[in-house]
């Protein structure tokens, strides 16, 4: 656009110079000459169409430059290495925390058995402690579901990036996008996993909602 304005200014200057050099020449005649030159340059195009054509050519150049820049960014590294590596790391977190949780539960079960043979109040105290540990261990289920949601999101990003590469880089076909998780309780009833704190109801809210049906 800036270049077009610059050219228009140059044209004005040249017209002014022509008028100064040939003061007798009517403006209409000069305009006719300029129009004839433009038509010669762009076939049957009017000056307005020629200007549009020029802008389209400029836009094409912008796209070519963007393509080169995207290629130089090596975005294929994101899909080839970085995202698969991130999902592997997340899978490893789930596996290791699951193993740790199993060990904790096993130890708790041993303590639970011991609790029944201890005199009171020690037995009750010990069982109370193991109850708290069992409750806390349910974190593994929640974090596993949350990590799975992150992995699914990463896979969608990976597919989107691959599509951008295929569109601009023109190398092969982009892989299909993974399906989005269902947003509502329909069909087989599979849901979205745990919601973030504040985004869903707690147990007392649920109790109130259920009570409203009675």
């Amino acid at each position: 656009m800036a270049e077009a304005f610059q050219r228009a200014a140059e044209l004005d200057e040249r017209l002014a110079a022509l008028r100064a050099r040939y003061p007798e020449a009517p403006v209409e005649v000069v305009a006719e000459i300029v129009q004839s030159i433009l038509v010669t340059l762009h076939g049957d195009l009017s000056s307005r169409e020629a200007s549009l054509l020029h802008e389209v050519e400029e836009l094409g150049q912008v796209i070519v430059n963007a393509k080169r820049e995207i290629e130089s960014l090596r975005v294929d590294e994101i899909t080839d290495r970085q995202i698969p590596s991130a999902t592997d790391e997340l899978d490893a977190i789930v596996t290791h925390t699951a193993q740790a949780t199993e060990s904790i539960l096993e130890t708790c079960e041993t303590l639970d058995d011991l609790a029944s043979s201890l005199p009171q109040p020690y037995g009750a105290k010990l069982q109370e402690a193991t109850t708290r540990i069992y409750e806390a261990c349910s974190f593994q289920d929640i974090t596993g579901q949350r990590i799975n949601k992150v992995v699914q999101t990463l896979k969608r990003i990976e597919a989107k990036v691959a599509q951008i590469i295929a569109t601009f880089g023109g190398e092969g076909e982009a892989p299909p996008l993974p399906e989005s998780p269902p947003a509502a309780p329909e069909g087989d009833g599979l849901m979205n996993g745990p919601a973030l704190p504040g985004a869903a109801m707690d147990q007392s809210d649920i109790d109130r909602l259920l009570a409203s049906f009675d």
């Binding site: 289920d141 929640i142 579901q145 509502a184 309780p185 009833g189 849901m191 979205n192 996993g193 745990p194 919601a195 869903a200 109801m201 707690d202 649920i206 909602l209 259920l210 049906f213």
Partner: peptide, 14 residues
Amino acid sequence: VTAESKAENVVAAR
């Protein structure tokens, strides 16, 4: 017993 805690889940289950 579920992590699904949106009102529509509870209503659907009910």
